[in-house]
Computed example of a mutant assay.
Amino acid sequence: MDIFFLGTGAGIPAKLRNVTSIALKLLEERGSIWLFDTGEATQHQILHTSIKPRRIEKIFITHLHGDHIYGLPGLLASRSFQGGESEVTIYGPKGLKEYITISLSVSQTYLKYPLKIVEIAEGVIFEDEQFIVEARLLDHGIPSYGYRIVEKDRPGTLLADKLVEAGVQPGPIFRKIKVGETVTLEDGTVIVPSDFLGPAQKGRIITILGDTRYCENAISLARDSDLLIHEATFSKGEEKLAFDYFHSTTHQAAEVANLAGSKQLCLTHISSRYDRQAWQELVMEAQEIFANTDIAEDFKEINIPSK
């Protein structure tokens, strides 16, 4: 499980930072990519990476400001041209379906794969046997959501030697035990998975927030997260400016991480007013409150290791 930043700037594209887009790489877990926001030129950023558009399974839009969605129609079209055939599901606020439908219709773009658009409300918006995704409203000028991605606990390591001692040979029965299925052998012996698996592997939690002022829902979504990705459009001391523009400061992002008990904080959505030399100062500001803080950069990758 890896986070890959395709765009980390605020408002408009800049030389050092493109506008917002984040890829959650779940290649080992499910062979797919989930995107969070698709600012202008997201597909251009992807060209400089190993990400394959055909592997994009889901796209989560935090809100409908242009710097978070202008790259969406082009990305969807290019995925079709490049041979993508599997279904893509897009989640986001009310109005997203109209935006996509009109963009594709006016440009006479016809996708060669199924497209599902889900306009969300607060609560669990997706769940399968591997993941739960929860959305909550943040505090921005328009409806803006944060997402909490929870990986479900995984079965422990298969105790193969112990199974062989019990008379089970490698093969289909091993696979059934690994996924938690009780098996009855030909001699009537019942193999209970819990006796042949190590401790369950705790699932990981990632929180990705849209644009927001400091708010309680941000803390709730980030509770006990392994990684919190929080906007920090402004530096400390600019709280009034951040409030007026519905954004957050470095200190406010760090306070959310601290109160939520997050393990790691990564700052993003950085204003172009801060040049490369100022980036480390922004990190140091946040570290005054939350020590394990880093700052996103375009093409930066963060691995979230298994527990």
Rank of each mutant, 00 (worst) to 15 (best):
residue 138 L to S: 12
residue 160 A to I: 07
residue 155 P to K: 02
residue 170 P to A: 08
residue 190 V to F: 05
residue 228 L to G: 13
residue 233 T to Y: 12
residue 185 L to F: 04
residue 161 D to C: 15
residue 191 I to F: 03
residue 131 F to T: 00
residue 221 L to C: 04
residue 165 E to R: 11
residue 110 Y to G: 06
residue 120 I to G: 01
residue 231 E to W: 07
residue 129 E to H: 05
residue 160 A to K: 11
residue 185 L to K: 04
residue 204 R to A: 14
residue 220 S to R: 06
residue 223 R to T: 06
residue 106 V to Y: 14
residue 216 E to P: 11
residue 115 L to A: 13
residue 153 D to F: 04
residue 156 G to A: 03
residue 118 V to D: 00
residue 111 L to T: 10
residue 219 I to W: 03
residue 114 P to A: 13
residue 162 K to Q: 14
residue 224 D to W: 11
residue 168 V to A: 11
residue 121 A to D: 06
residue 173 I to G: 03
residue 190 V to G: 07
residue 182 T to K: 14
residue 116 K to D: 00
residue 131 F to R: 00
residue 184 T to E: 00
residue 119 E to Y: 15
residue 155 P to H: 02
residue 122 E to H: 15
residue 114 P to T: 06
residue 165 E to S: 15
residue 152 K to N: 10
residue 130 Q to R: 09
residue 219 I to D: 13
residue 139 D to P: 09
residue 226 D to H: 14
residue 160 A to C: 10
residue 178 K to F: 04
residue 111 L to Q: 05
residue 150 V to M: 08
residue 179 V to Y: 06
residue 110 Y to M: 06
residue 206 I to K: 01
residue 170 P to V: 01
residue 178 K to H: 10
residue 182 T to E: 01
residue 233 T to M: 11
residue 121 A to I: 08
residue 144 S to K: 07
residue 109 T to V: 08
residue 227 L to A: 09
residue 147 Y to T: 12
residue 180 G to C: 03
residue 195 D to N: 15
residue 209 L to E: 01
residue 162 K to C: 15
residue 205 I to A: 06
residue 173 I to F: 08
residue 140 H to F: 08
residue 159 L to I: 11
residue 212 T to C: 07
residue 164 V to D: 00
residue 229 I to N: 01
residue 203 G to A: 11
residue 117 I to R: 10
residue 146 G to L: 03
residue 168 V to Q: 02
residue 198 G to S: 06
residue 150 V to W: 04
residue 198 G to T: 10
residue 225 S to F: 03
